[in-house]
């Protein structure tokens, strides 16, 4: 490396006054004796001045407005970023296992909620729609043919109210805590057997009541009323719950007669079903009262 190259390499430090005294003396001595380096150093200084004196360029007038518009968009998307970065950004940073557990919990809770709404709301509406819409009457195969009409015993029919494809086997006794507690095991098994044939209402609507389908509701109710004294039961409630063509009858019967009555009803075409949501204002499902059991039976028209 020549002396001129070495001195040229020190221009920056010399210009910024970052060289020590001894080096500075050597450099200046060389510059005095070398016109080329002196000229070069002059241009170097001029270049630095040209760079530092470059005019400040003013932003356009609409710059702030445009920037605010962009920031507004960024602020809107930051809500999404919260979820996008929930596991990585402070102050929401979570260890991965906690984050995954939280997600799993949310998924399970969501699934449970979905299931709840599916069984409690949608089917209830569906069943009501099918009740009042003859065109959508489902699963005729599941019906038990009635012998005669107008009386309780021979004329009752089962209304599954749901398409067979949506049914699934389950234990009716499992849906009937009161029955399963108060009934003999054999009767519980009996109901379970029946429920396997007609599981839909029990599965979909729920538990504790019976739906009886009859071409003549009045005669069916009267038949029931005639049975009641024989089993030491009594009528406690009778109303139509605001639905035309439907009567709900509440009966209080001894718990040991419960099995007999429900078996009787089931044997003649009734099926356990619940009365939820839509019937919320109607009497609640079966309840116990001492040794007696309160049972609600819904009578609907055969369609």
């Amino acid at each position: 490396m020549s002396e001129c190259e070495r001195i040229g390499g020190l221009f920056g430090e010399l210009h910024d006054e970052r060289v020590d005294g001894e080096t500075e003396t050597v450099v200046w001595k060389h510059l005095h004796s070398c016109p080329e380096c002196r000229e070069d150093f002059k241009w170097y200084g001029m270049t630095v001045r040209a760079l530092t004196n470059l005019e400040r360029v003013a932003p356009p007038r609409e710059f702030i407005a445009q920037l605010n518009s962009r920031l507004h968009d960024a602020r809107s998307s930051s809500f999404l970023d919260f979820f996008r970065n929930i596991f990585s950004s402070a102050p929401y940073a979570l260890p991965l296992p906690v984050g995954v557990s939280a997600l799993a919990f949310i998924a399970v809770a969501g699934f449970a909620f979905y299931n709840y709404s599916h069984t409690e709301v949608v089917p209830s509406l569906a069943s009501y729609q099918s009740l009042y819409d003859p065109g959508t009457r489902p699963n005729a195969d599941a019906r038990i043919a009635a012998k005669g009409a107008g009386t309780l015993q021979p004329s009752m029919q089962v209304s599954t109210l749901m398409p067979a494809s949506e049914t699934k086997p389950s234990s009716l006794a499992g849906h009937l805590p009161l029955l399963s507690k108060s009934m003999p095991e054999s009767l519980g098994n009996n109901i379970e057997t029946v429920s396997r044939n007609f599981p839909t209402i029990a599965d979909r609507i729920g538990a504790d009541n019976l739906t009886v389908e009859s071409p003549s509701i009045d005669q069916a109710v009267e038949s029931l009323k005639r049975i009641l004294p024989n089993i030491q039961g009594r009528l406690v409630d009778e109303n139509n719950c605001g639905h035309v063509g439907e009567v709900v009858v509440g009966v209080m019967i001894p718990s040991d007669a419960y099995g007999n009555l429900t078996s009787e009803l089931i044997n003649h075409g009734a099926v356990a079903s619940g009365m939820k949501d839509a019937e919320a204002k109607s009497p609640s499902p079966a309840k116990g009262e001492g040794n007696n059991v309160l049972l609600y039976i819904r009578f609907v028209h055969t369609r």
Partner: peptide, 8 residues
């Protein structure tokens, strides 16, 4: 700076 200097 040397490059800019040469151009200038």
């Amino acid at each position: 700076r040397m490059v800019v200097k040469e151009k200038l």
